[in-house]
């Protein structure tokens, strides 16, 4: 199948701003799904609220556009009730780690077989450019006119600590790498997290003098380095990209199947 076969073309052009990194992440995701030759009927995309969440309307999967921050909770219900489905949960900063932070760590803790994609643009775009828990200190936003004093989460470290069994990071600039990481995450059995640094030229780039989409992508290129690379060794201040965790752990739905087997045995004996 062609990439376009995974899109709901009638809703294009999409609603994202020119140069929005979320479009590139959508692009990487449909390429990943296409390359894996997944059956569209077996994919459920669950999203929350915000710019990122609109992604579920553009893909020709079963799509569930839910409440702000609750995508992973809805997704947990979908997955546990029908474990044969592939459940993809793209989230923005707020969905994943502000209002939805609790669901994020608990989904990771359960190691339920869901792929969480954190589209990190360090800003609340849809409401007009307020800072997020991923902005970090020193950022200008409409609710931080004097710059932020809030520290940011490190999504990778948080996901690792919470128990995710696959954790990776890339950027919208490194789109081939993003696609490969998404493929691995989707195939991984267990809770997988892929953080993709995204750019919001409209609300973040302008306010923080990072320029337009092109300028912001240049920063994604220069501010990051591959895990294990010389560049990262020479400059540990760069944001590392790559796979941070990839391990086999008991998966929640499979463990629950064992509970069912045990309960049925107890009942019949």
């Amino acid at each position: 199948m062609a990439v376009k076969d995974y899109l709901r073309e009638r809703f294009f052009p999409h609603m994202w701003c020119p140069g929005c990194g979320h479009g590139t992440i959508l692009n990487a995701l449909v390429h990943a799904v296409e390359e894996l030759e997944l059956n569209k009927n077996e994919i459920v995309m669950v999203s929350g609220i915000g710019c990122s969440a609109r992604i579920s309307g553009y893909v020709d999967f079963h799509s569930l556009h839910t409440l702000h921050g609750r995508a992973l909770a809805f997704a947990t219900g979908v997955k546990l009730s029908r474990p044969n489905l592939k459940v993809l949960v793209p989230m923005g900063d707020g969905d994943a780690l502000a209002i939805g932070g609790n669901h994020f760590i608990h989904a990771a803790r359960r190691n339920i077989d869901i792929t969480a994609i954190v589209m990190n643009n360090r800003i609340y775009g849809m409401t007009g450019g307020q800072f997020s828990p991923l902005s970090g200190p020193g950022v200008k936003a409409t609710t931080a006119p004097y710059t932020t004093i809030d520290n940011n989460f490190d999504v990778v470290e948080l996901a690792k600590a919470a128990g995710a069994s696959f954790v990776a990071r890339s950027t919208a600039y490194h789109v081939k790498e993003s696609t490969e990481l998404l493929k691995k995450a989707i195939l991984h059995k267990g809770f997988s997290v892929v953080e993709i640094l995204s750019q919001c030229p409209t609300h973040y780039g302008r306010k923080n003098k990072e320029g337009d989409a092109v300028g912001m992508l240049e920063l994604q290129k220069t501010n990051t380095a591959k895990l294990g690379s010389k560049a990262l060794e020479d400059n540990p201040g760069l944001i590392p990209r790559g796979i941070f965790v990839e391990k086999e752990c008991p998966e929640y739905c499979e463990e629950y199947d064992k509970i069912i087997a045990q309960a049925m045995k107890g009942r019949n004996s």
């Binding site: 990439v3 294009f12 994202w16 929005c20 692009n27 789109v175 696609t179």
Partner: peptide
Amino acid sequence: KMCELRCPDLAIE
């Protein structure tokens, strides 16, 4: 194909 992959509008093939 980097233009196709990176295009945020999925406008290039």
